[in-house]
Nucleic acid binder design. Structure first.
Lengths: 247, 247
DNA sequence: CGTCATCTTGACCCAGTTCAATATAGGTGG
DNA sequence: CCACCTATATTGAACTGGGTCAAGATGACG
């Protein structure tokens, strides 16, 4: 029983019936604990499982032939991990715990069964994956077209927003349990340069920082330097779920 | 009746029953013709339709506040366009014809109906979107971590592969009906630099080029400089479609 | 209390950008 | 069929954001 699984990600545009919520919680195996740096799944393996992240942060990353790494997503509790690779013979992304974490493994078989059994779950999945796709498009635009300062600012705003959604409030101070090298791998920058950008953000009064705790001091200015588009989730998805009105 | 719609994208891992194929073809409105540069849908509009691309090339792009543009995908015939925005209140991507094109509009309502009615269609959609997501992850890695030469090479190989899948053969010479500026917007480069990279590819004998026709002369070397991962589509997706064996 | 990972900062370098000037090629109106 | 016009391609010269290299500093942890 995963009574501790945050469910906000499953109810973003569609409110799932209680029966579905139960089935989601039932499809996962008993949670397992991961130490920091533990590899949950390595790329190249045949995909047989996906994972519900219950607690902690996990990075999903892709390796380039040259040995460089691209972190495709910093996952927070409530996220469903490793799903992109379900369409491949061999897994594309490596899942690594950034902090001690707790995850529940889900076999593709149980996922598939729920997807087939519950139309509302299938619909919620469809929309959720499209949201991830839009996020990827936005980050691609940032990495391809914006300077380092904008990328780091955008990341901080994005994390604050997601942590807020997770806790159900607004957050402007949070723990960033992530190495500057990992931030670089996420944004297409060097650890050294990430460090310089942080310095700049502090020096210009946009954020405060001690150790890994970050405080957003001037959201307004941060937003304007970040060149980030606000994306509002669809409110009315009745075209997809038939009977149901919007959330 | 869209007897001319290429269906290869709908049968990549899952072989859809004939009834589904018919329903797909029936869900689209009569094709409309687009002139080069015509905008099919602009970002910011409420999403009400998606589009089946029957003929021609269409770009999907995202705008940054600064006015820069990121082309998220060069779409080829058979692609389903504009779907990422179905999860949003306001469309994220602009769809622009790169060549004269023919598309069939599909209301979200008919898409949703088919998605609900046909489990195999829903499954095929899920996998297809995940494939797009993996492609975005790979391009993000390329833009974030590889030099210009690798990015351009990767694009050429990717297009050759997709055009091959479309025509059902192997292709190493094709028309590239795309401006160098557009290539730049796709790869996070300047038009000027794209030009220089093309020169370099020609000078080192990797490709030939006259006007917009490109010939891949040395696939092997091209592949090694491209730093591109080959991604093999899943063969067995019976976990998702119950009865059905792999393609 | 030593060791390894991470962070910081400086000095220098380079891939790719910017700016600018020319070339080409279709496409258009007459 | 021609003269013109606009979009695109090409190339050179100079510049810069971010990378690379290297040398400490600072912690966290066993």
């Amino acid at each position: 029983m995963l009574h501790s699984l945050p469910l906000h990600r499953f109810n973003e545009s569609i409110v799932l019936p209680a029966a579905d919520i139960e089935r989601i919680q039932a499809m996962g195996e008993p949670p397992m604990r991961l130490a920091r740096h533990a590899v949950l799944r390595r790329e190249g393996e045949p995909p047989r499982f996906i994972y519900l992240l219950i607690e902690g942060w996990v990075a999903s990353s892709v390796l380039l032939p040259g040995g460089d790494r691209q972190i495709t997503k910093f996952h927070l509790p409530g996220d469903l991990l490793g799903t992109p690779s379900m369409c491949l013979e061999r897994t594309a992304d490596t899942l690594t715990a950034l902090t001690p974490a707790s995850v529940s493994r889900v076999s593709l078989a149980s996922f598939g069964e729920l997807f087939q059994r519950s139309p509302s779950f299938a619909a919620a999945m469809l929309l959720s994956i499209q949201r991830e796709r839009v996020a990827l498009m936005d980050r691609l635009a940032a990495v391809g077209r914006t300077p380092a300062l904008a990328r780091v600012s955008a990341l901080l705003l994005d994390l604050a927003e997601r942590l807020g959604a997770l806790s159900g409030g607004t957050i402007d101070e949070f723990e960033l349990p992530v190495t500057q090298e990992q931030i670089g791998d996420h944004l297409g920058l060097t650890a050294v340069h990430v460090n310089r950008v942080f310095r700049q953000l502090v020096d210009t009064g946009l954020i405060r920082r001690n150790r890994q705790r970050v405080t957003l001091l001037d959201r307004q200015r941060l937003r304007s330097v970040s060149a980030r588009q606000e994306r509002e989730p669809a409110k009315d998805v009745s075209w997809l779920v038939g009977g149901q009105a919007g959330a």
